[in-house]
């Protein structure tokens, strides 16, 4: 029941095992690299070329393996919930440090630019590198800047949870609509023509889902950051 010792023992044994495995794997890989198996990735790219999304990685992440993405969203959702739960037992007393005038003004100037960039990354996820996960985190980092520089700034819990709920529910609903319309969960039921490849409105549900993922990730990360920041200020 000695927590400190147990954690140390488990961590070190895990590290040791991992090192051993890494050596074994390097050894095996150097001596016989896998021969050319026809990779799933190539086949996925072949299918994507009929699907009308310029960034093939987005198609794989959001559409072909969209079910995994749904699961990852759920993981993030539960993790954010857990952080809120574990930290909620502390008191809400804030220890305020006044930040300098320069920082306050500059962060006000930077905030809209960063938000704009985050939304750009989210919306153009199917055309250029980036997408919901990255864009969401960029938006959250804009809020982080504001939270650090303005001590009295606080995100409204109800607004964030409304965004969160909206995004999560609409992801599952879009999936179920695919099931009802095309008999295929997460089926691409919005018309997507190959001639529109590279335009902003193309690819059917794929950009829509990535924007939803972005909203969800952005609100979860902002909530995590706010919980950690505000609760760690009390002394």
């Amino acid at each position: 029941m000695n927590l400190k010792r147990d954690v140390a023992v488990q961590t070190y044994s895990g590290l040791g095992l991992s090192a051993l495995l890494a050596i074994t794997i390097l050894n095996i890989m150097l001596h016989n690299m896998p021969q050319s198996v026809k990779r799933a990735g190539e086949k996925l790219l072949e299918i994507n070329s009929q699907d009308g999304v310029a960034n093939a990685v987005t198609t794989v992440v959001v559409y072909f393996r969209g079910f995994d993405t749904l699961g990852e969203i759920a993981v993030l959702f539960i993790a954010s919930l857990g952080i809120g739960l574990v930290l909620s037992s502390h008191s809400e007393h804030h220890h305020k440090v006044e930040s300098s005038f320069i920082l306050k003004t500059a962060s006000k100037l930077l905030f809209p630019i960063i938000i704009l960039f985050g939304i750009y990354v989210m919306v153009y996820g199917h055309l250029s590198p980036g997408g919901g996960f990255q864009g969401g985190v960029i938006v959250a980092s804009a809020f982080l800047l504001l939270l650090i520089s303005h001590q009295d700034f606080e995100l409204s819990h109800s607004v964030i949870s409304a965004f969160e709920t909206l995004a999560g529910v609409s992801y599952v609903i879009i999936g179920l609509m695919g099931l009802w319309i095309l008999d295929n969960f997460l089926g691409n039921f919005i018309p997507h023509d190959i001639s529109q490849m590279g335009m902003l409105v193309s690819g059917g549900i794929i950009p829509l889902i990535y924007i939803i993922v972005g909203i969800k990730v952005g609100s979860e990360m902002s909530m995590i950051v706010q919980n950690l920041l505000k609760r760690s200020d009390n002394e």
Partner: peptide, 9 residues
């Protein structure tokens, strides 16, 4: 894509 994700996250 991975580079952007790694940079941000």
């Amino acid at each position: 894509d991975v580079a952007l994700t790694e940079a941000v996250i």
